[in-house]
């Protein structure tokens, strides 16, 4: 075990378990959504969590963002168990922020972009003056490449494209001064040609700000290219983990191989057709 000093700046999940109670008429059953999952996020590194829907990826994201309470296990930040209420929780939320999948649902259509960024700044920096808050909001917009900031600040979400909205969502996550970002399928709802831009933005910020990023996705290709480590989940368990190139190029677990085989690869053009034709 590393001592506390070495673990400063690290966000850890220790033996996380989440069970959901299901009701089917009068019968109760338990769904084990997450079974004993441990990993750690370090500054400047991206960890990808891949798996199919229902594998428990999003439940882990929600537990890391404290939107869900683990049935057992702990979330450790800087070597200390994270708080569940009060000032400690407020500090935790300052440190760990989430970017959601749906950029159309995660911004309030009633408020301007400025409001979305200034509100977290005010909440997390109560001492700041209005002009400080305003300047900082503009800085954030520029950091996510929405320039000139003054043109975007007074718009409302419906005036922006999906990719621009997701950039606002990322800026919003950075506003409290987060050190860790949990990104739950941040680009799966965006058009293919703008996904790369948003992922590159996340990568830039991650490197420049030394953010620890948990990148949740079902897309193995971007997981490989945008993360240092890949965790493969199957029915609530991590079945394989390792450096991203190793997991993709030399998979060990059967399930990882199944996932890789299912991913479309243009290099295989015509192969499936011939396979089926020759009696598959």
């Amino acid at each position: 075990m590393r001592d506390i000093r070495q673990r400063a700046g690290i966000l850890e999940a220790q033996h996380l378990v989440k069970d959901f109670r299901l009701r089917d008429g009068v019968r109760l059953s338990t769904l084990h959504a997450v079974k004993d999952v441990s990993f750690s996020l370090e500054p400047g590194r991206t960890v990808a969590l891949v798996g199919e829907s229902g594998s428990g990826k999003s439940t882990i994201a929600r537990m890391m963002a404290k939107l869900e309470t683990p049935s057992s296990g702990r979330v450790i930040i800087d070597g200390k168990p994270s708080a569940d209420r009060g000032r400690g929780l407020a500090q935790y939320r300052r440190d760990v922020q989430m970017v959601f999948q749906d950029p159309f649902g995660s911004l309030n259509p009633f408020h301007t972009i400025r409001h979305h960024l200034e509100r977290p700044l005010r909440i997390h920096h109560p001492g700041w003056s209005s002009s400080q808050v305003r300047n900082h909001a503009h800085e954030l917009l520029e950091r996510v490449q929405l320039t000139p900031a003054s043109r975007f600040a007074d718009r409302r979400p419906h005036e922006l494209s999906g990719g621009q909205r997701q950039r606002v969502a990322i800026a919003r996550a950075l506003a409290p001064g987060a050190r860790f970002i949990v990104a739950d399928e941040p680009v799966s709802m965006l058009d293919v040609s703008i996904r790369l831009g948003v992922l590159n933005l996340l990568a830039d910020l991650q490197r420049e700000e030394r953010l620890g990023v948990l990148y949740i996705t079902h897309d193995l290709a971007t997981a490989r290219h945008f993360s240092d480590e890949i965790l493969v989940m199957l029915r609530g368990e991590i079945v394989e983990r390792g450096p991203s190139d190793r997991v993709i190029l030399d998979p060990q677990h059967e399930y990882t191989k199944t996932l890789l085989d299912a991913a479309a690869d243009p290099e295989n053009l015509g192969m499936l057709r011939d396979e089926v034709r020759n009696g598959g």
Binding site: G44, R45, V192, S193, R195, L196, N200, A203, D204, L205, Q206, R207, E208, R210, L220, A221, T222, R224, H225, F226, D228, P243, D245, I248, L249, L260, A263, D265, P266, E267
Partner: peptide, 24 residues
């Protein structure tokens, strides 16, 4: 805009200075 799963990285080089000393 589609990264290759097994092949070269193409346009999908992560930008930004690499602050880790690892294999990334």
């Amino acid at each position: 805009s589609f990264p290759s799963l097994r092949g070269e990285r193409g346009d999908f080089v992560r930008r930004g200075a690499d602050t880790t000393t690892g294999d990334a």
